[in-house]
Design a protein around this nucleic acid. Structure first.
Lengths: 170, 170
DNA sequence: TTCTGATTAGTCAACTTTGACTAATCAAGA
DNA sequence: TCTTGATTAGTCAAAGTTGACTAATCAGAA
């Protein structure tokens, strides 16, 4: 449902055509979601069938035609319902990412530590990059701050883990 | 790929039949993954076709027959490859959960805060529950500790957010 | 003038995931 | 004796997701 909410919240601010939506997803939201173009169209069509968004074909000058998507009143209601649900609940926290930790003993301790060091480096790089971006005052500011918060937390966790493994492993 | 890794790491420790696997997923791993029964069978069949796991039908006494899945040598190799990849990389961090924060201004500030308080309460309950479980020494210990770490971090984040919204909102 | 890349529209087949369902055996309670 | 719930096996249609692809217009570079 959160992907519908994302699209509805974009359209709520201003009507957009598909290319615009996908540019926004790729440019501004790439770090925050993995919603991709065919899925976006799939969901837009689904929501159009539900009456949450309306499509209108327009054309300016000789430019390629645009199909503009905008929110209907039903869409606004759905948006508010989804928003309330989204704010009130936290995502279940799954750690597919951590599954390897179930089987740490399958590798030599040295190799496992080296691999986790690689993970650490990747996290540190992502954190540096996220922090380097200029402070953002727009609608994405909370998401960006959460991302930084989370990356810091993950980095601290890997360090803690490496510390514990270091003690045990030698 | 991480779901394959999960199944392979289970089978690596001991061969298992489907019911056992799904019981383990529902009982012990429910908080860590959302891998569900039909997906598990789908992946087991796929990996069987790839030669990573072998199936064998057994029957004890009058009990219903069992189809036992076990790792092949190719499966062991695949397991190690996936494990190395898993340990060395961090999951991309997507915040479908946070999408509502893009549209906070769509609700009265008071209501938004109240909804986030609900989220906070849910996180706090999950954290209490996770911490209440007796310290776990088995293969899940790191995952459980990561879960606790993450829940604490999320709780701190929501508190920080509520603090900032409180200042702005009045 | 031709070619490349941005702008606009998607589509499609293949893959993955899931809620809901079927089917059989056996132990134990009512 | 009958019913319920655990143990064992899944299946299936429907929904969601994605990599790769097509098609048209226009501005600007070569």
């Amino acid at each position: 449902m959160n992907r519908e909410l994302l699209l509805l919240s974009l359209l709520r601010r201003q009507e957009m055509h598909g290319y615009q939506i996908n540019e926004f997803l790729n440019r501004d939201l790439a770090a925050c979601t993995d919603l991709k173009k065919p899925t976006a169209y799939f969901l837009l069509n689904k929501m159009a069938a539900q009456g949450w968004v309306a499509q209108e074909e327009t054309r300016e000058g000789n430019r390629p035609p645009r199909r503009v998507y905008r929110l209907t009143p039903e869409g606004e209601t759905a948006f508010q319902d989804l928003l309330r649900e989204n704010l009130a609940s936290h995502a279940p926290i799954y750690f597919d990412d951590d599954i390897g930790l179930m089987a740490l003993d399958a590798l030599p301790a040295d190799e496992a530590r080296a691999l986790l060091q690689q993970r650490r480096a990747g996290l540190a790089a992502a954190l540096t990059e996220a922090q380097a971006a200029p402070p953002h005052g727009g609608s994405l500011q909370w998401i960006i701050q959460h991302r930084i918060h989370h990356l810091s937390s993950e980095l601290a966790w890997v360090d803690e883990l490496l510390g514990k493994l270091g003690q045990v492993g030698r």
